[in-house]
Computed example of a mutant assay.
Amino acid sequence: MRPVEFDYTAPTSVEDVLRALADSDDATIMGGGQSLMPVLRMRMADPGLLVDLRRVPELQQVREDGDHLVIGAMTTHHAVAHDALVAEHAGVLGQAAARVGDPQIRYRGTTGGALAHADPAGDIAPAVLALDGVIEVSGPTGARTVPAAEFFRGPFTTALDEGEVVTAIRLPKHTGWGMRYEKFSHVAQSWAIVAVAAAVRVEDGVIARVRLGMANMGQTPLRAEAAEAALTGASLEAQSLHEAAARAGEGTSPAVDPAGTAEYRRHLAGVLSGRAVTAAAGVGG
């Protein structure tokens, strides 16, 4: 099936993007197009105007800003997975980006597009949550920031208002932290049945700080707060870390579908959290 007819524009600045959105009553933004194009082909969306972000250079940068790392919304998954600054300061995001789909999708799909798409099973959001990231947004009333924990409102629903666009992801530098992304899926290219992103700070032989982001454990990406609380202050002993991490699924309401029951996903979240935390902390087993 072919998409319905629409107008097309490819602005070269964020200001021109916002102007195009403001001038149209029926505009749709395209990042890498990996989620949008199938929807257009199936005529599940029929925009009057398609606003392509691929020619906006300022949206494609990875840069340092003091104690933060700023990743432009149009930075591809491939670029994030291979960026030296990401590896040094936000390694779990690079690991997650390397697990998105297949190479073709990673070369075209974008970090900001994945967050704006807000699929609860997506790979990028759990890593951004684990890194305590903030989403930078521009719109008709100016620029604003939204903490990642508040950005996701439901399946494929975000805090973006009409006429707004994600411009960057701002992450506190986690230099020296241990990090690990664990994903379980039926085949390598598929969505996660469950995924866990771990960021761990070890001090004086114990887990001083830990954050765990999870995919496909509810209506939105989630933090594993019960496991985080149980792990904080824990000694670096594999069995005790696995026991504490097993609480990752507490308080969650994961989907029930052919891939697994809610009980199965909660168990799997605990197993993956244990693997992620022990690996991030440098503990064998």
Rank of each mutant, 00 (worst) to 15 (best):
P3C: 09
V4I: 05
F6D: 09
F6A: 09
F6E: 02
T12D: 14
V14C: 10
V17A: 13
L18I: 12
L18H: 08
L18Q: 07
A22G: 13
S24N: 13
M30W: 02
G33Y: 11
S35K: 11
L36T: 14
L36Y: 04
L40V: 12
M42Q: 13
R43N: 07
R43G: 11
L49I: 07
L49Y: 05
V51M: 14
D52W: 10
L53I: 07
R55Y: 09
L59T: 08
Q60D: 14
E64S: 15
D67K: 00
L69G: 02
I71E: 01
M74N: 01
T75W: 03
T75D: 01
H77M: 05
D83L: 12
V86D: 04
L93D: 14
R99T: 04
Q104I: 09
Q104P: 05
Q104C: 01
Q104Y: 12
I105E: 03
I105L: 12
I105C: 08
G109H: 06
G109T: 08
T110I: 03
G112W: 04
G113E: 01
H117G: 02
D119I: 10
P120W: 15
A121T: 10
I124S: 12
L129T: 01
G133W: 01
V134K: 03
V134N: 00
I135T: 05
S138K: 10
S138G: 08
G139H: 06
R144M: 05
V146T: 08
V146L: 04
A148L: 04
A149L: 11
E150Y: 03
F151W: 00
F152K: 05
R153D: 07
G154A: 06
P155Q: 06
L160D: 13
G163D: 11
G163E: 13
G163M: 08
G163K: 08
I169H: 05
L171F: 04
P172Y: 00
K173V: 01
H174E: 01
H174Q: 10
G178I: 03
E182N: 10
S185V: 02
H186T: 12
H186L: 14
A188K: 08
S190A: 15
S190P: 04
W191C: 07
A192Q: 11
V196P: 10
V200G: 06
R201M: 13
A208H: 02
V210S: 02
R211L: 09
A215W: 09
N216K: 05
N216T: 12
T220R: 08
P221I: 13
L222E: 15
L222S: 13
R223W: 03
A224T: 09
A230K: 09
T232R: 07
T232H: 08
L236K: 03
A238L: 06
A238H: 08
S240K: 14
S240Q: 15
L241M: 02
L241S: 04
A245Q: 11
A245F: 10
R247T: 00
T252V: 06
T252S: 13
P254T: 03
P254A: 00
A255M: 07
D257Q: 01
G260V: 00
T261P: 04
E263C: 00
Y264D: 03
R265F: 02
R265T: 02
H267A: 11
A269Y: 10
A269P: 08
S273Y: 12
G274R: 04
R275G: 07
V277Y: 08
A279P: 02
A279G: 15
A280L: 04
A281K: 06
V283T: 06
V283G: 03
G285K: 02
G285T: 02
